[in-house]
């Protein structure tokens, strides 16, 4: 931990977690985190669209399925660190906070505290929500009876 440059995989992870978290959830985690440095908006936050693509037959060539709303924001910290966010939906403040956190998480002196205080709990909550859906789905899995075990 604490290396100067985060890996692409680390950055991808926290950006994905922040994209899925609501503004309220992020703000609640930040109340317990150290204060964030001031930032300058470079672009946005602005709502727009991303064309979602599928594959023909599920695994063939690409096609355009339809658009989704996405909000993006780019910010800069006083030391020049750039933060970006692209998040599903139209919440401008969520996108700005996500961009600010992306910038802060690239700062080695802030990273560990923010990973532990913000990203990890949000990720855990998201994983639990997904696991709950998986458990409900599993409860609707059909158990077929064969003639043999119907008699037994």
């Amino acid at each position: 931990m604490g290396s100067a440059e985060p890996s692409t995989a680390e950055r991808r992870h926290w950006m994905g977690v922040l994209a899925r978290a609501s503004l309220g959830e992020i703000a609640a985690r930040l109340e317990q985190a150290p204060p964030l440095p001031t930032h300058t908006r470079l672009r946005g936050p602005e709502a727009g669209l991303v064309m979602v693509r599928g594959r023909q037959g599920g695994d063939g060539s690409r096609f355009n399925l339809g658009e989704m709303t996405v909000t993006r924001c780019s910010v800069r910290l006083a030391d020049g660190t750039l933060g970006h966010a692209y998040v599903a939906g139209r919440d401008l403040r969520q996108a700005e906070l996500a961009a600010l956190l992306d910038a802060c998480l690239q700062r080695p002196e802030l990273r560990d505290a923010l990973l532990a205080g913000v990203i990890a709990p949000l990720a855990a909550r998201q994983a639990e929500a997904a696991a709950l859906v998986a458990r409900k789905a599993a409860a609707t899995k059909v158990e077929f009876f064969t003639m043999a075990n119907m008699r037994s």
Partner: peptide
């Protein structure tokens, strides 16, 4: 009324 930022990677339905 919205600008398009681009296109997604193909979704992995598998």
């Amino acid at each position: 009324t919205l600008a398009r930022f681009g296109s997604s990677e193909p979704v992995e339905t598998g």
